[in-house]
Design a binder for these strands. Structure first.
Lengths: 255, 255
DNA sequence: TAGTGGTCTAGACCACTCG
DNA sequence: GAGTGGTCTAGACCACTAG
């Protein structure tokens, strides 16, 4: 964090050089997560650049997911919530009467909560009805909720369930009871065979960024789970996760 | 793509309004992938804003992963390489004598190639030696390579293998032969038990962005695979993937 | 009120691409 | 050479946060 100067002979743009200095400080933990970065005016004074250039340097760090700005307060090194999501034994342990998310979080000893945003009939996007094996436009049960870990939103999930499975069962309730919706499906004789998960990553839409309180430069993990029971698809769950908060874990047997 | 105007009464910043217009055109495919966006000067003329504001609007799209700029040429709607990576049957099919990546790509009928960057002894980061069950600083065999799909780099992988397994075997060669390094390990009597995979997503480092020719606003998928055979960890493979090029697929049995 | 970031302007010089 | 993006400056006004 020693005072560094711009090399005017360098090919590297001035704003990048300043960003490099700050990045080095962040990566070496000389500027720890949550600490305040130099203000724009102090960069202007220290480096002898215009305010626009100082801002650009700081913006580079935001784009790289290393910093955030807070209006009226300053620029700060971004805090990273460390959370781990288990997978392979996630569904096995569900049989003890807990929903998958509960199992995941308890395995990591964190305080969590669930916010139900919407439960009721609704339309599903065509990609979803197609996975469910239903004609486009078919009404389904929609369960939309947001998961919070230690007060911070980290995950935003929407489940789609065929109405012939959900109608008249506790699956239509906000709280479907012990074991979650999978438990209720088993009560009705459905035998689960497998869960297929597709994972991708991308930048969030503006909506997603708002729902998850994501700073700029923070990608999301997109997970689509298809649950198969008794020979048919009984649920498609579309999940958007703060990528800074999750590591997904899969254990594949060799044979 | 009709001529739209800025609403000066709106709370939304001018550069965001312009970005919104362009984003809508991109998402509706009125501006298809690869097409040229309006030049900075034409935005200046059409919207009556300064060049800085026009550039900021375009930069928003870059940060969101929707556009790229090419010096001297213009701004373009980003092309997205569609590729799918299979997982669950990836290792099962390896036994036919093909490496996992080959299986993945053939399943998607794409032209691919592998570039070997380095094969030889080297140091492994402490996270890696710890996974391998070796003391920090132990030398290991390092195999670093880059995978290209249809000429575009999409994946950058580094394998770390304990020397007592690799030394004196074709694993130390650039081309380890049919079935890849796993095939050679089996030749020596190792029996594979499972592959553990940890997946996360984040923004790339500058190095990673260069190696993968990633535009700004393009996150990477980070996959760390730990191969367990005959009761010990025989390889850790650290993979960085262009998130725009991959969808990871896992099938989890219910019991 | 003082300090911080958020937005915008007008103008400059440079480097790259293409015909 | 004409057009495109890349970088930088000096200055302005506004909005938010704090003591």
């Amino acid at each position: 964090m020693a005072l560094r100067r711009i090399d005017p002979a360098s090919d590297r743009a001035v704003y990048r050089q300043i960003a490099d200095h700050l990045r080095a400080d962040i990566e070496s933990h000389e500027r720890p997560p949550g600490s305040q970065l130099p203000s724009e005016s102090s960069l202007v004074a220290d480096y002898g650049v215009s305010r626009v250039t100082a801002r650009r340097a700081l913006s580079v760090l935001v784009t790289d997911g290393l910093a955030i700005s807070e209006h009226g307060k300053g620029w700060f090194v971004r805090r990273r919530p460390p959370v781990k999501r288990l997978s392979s034994d996630r569904f096995a342990r569900r049989h003890e009467g807990k929903a998958a998310f509960t199992v995941d979080m308890e395995a990591n000893e964190r305080k969590f909560s669930v916010e139900v945003i919407y439960v009721g009939q609704g339309d599903a996007p065509p990609e979803i009805t197609s996975r469910l094996g239903l004609p486009p436009g078919t009404a389904v049960l929609v369960r939309r909720r947001r998961y919070l870990v230690e007060g911070q939103p980290t995950e935003f999930a929407t489940s789609y369930i065929p109405l012939d499975i959900a109608a008249g069962t506790p699956i239509e309730q906000e709280n479907p009871g012990p074991g979650g919706i999978y438990g209720r499906m088993e009560d009705h004789g459905l035998v689960f065979e497998r869960y297929d998960e597709e994972i991708s990553a991308r930048m969030p839409t503006e909506d997603e960024a708002r729902h998850l309180s994501l700073p700029a430069g923070s990608p999301v993990l997109h997970l689509v789970r298809t649950a198969v029971a008794s020979g048919r698809v009984v649920e498609v769950c579309d999940t958007i996760m703060d990528s800074a908060a999750f590591v997904l874990f899969y254990s594949l047997p060799a044979r």
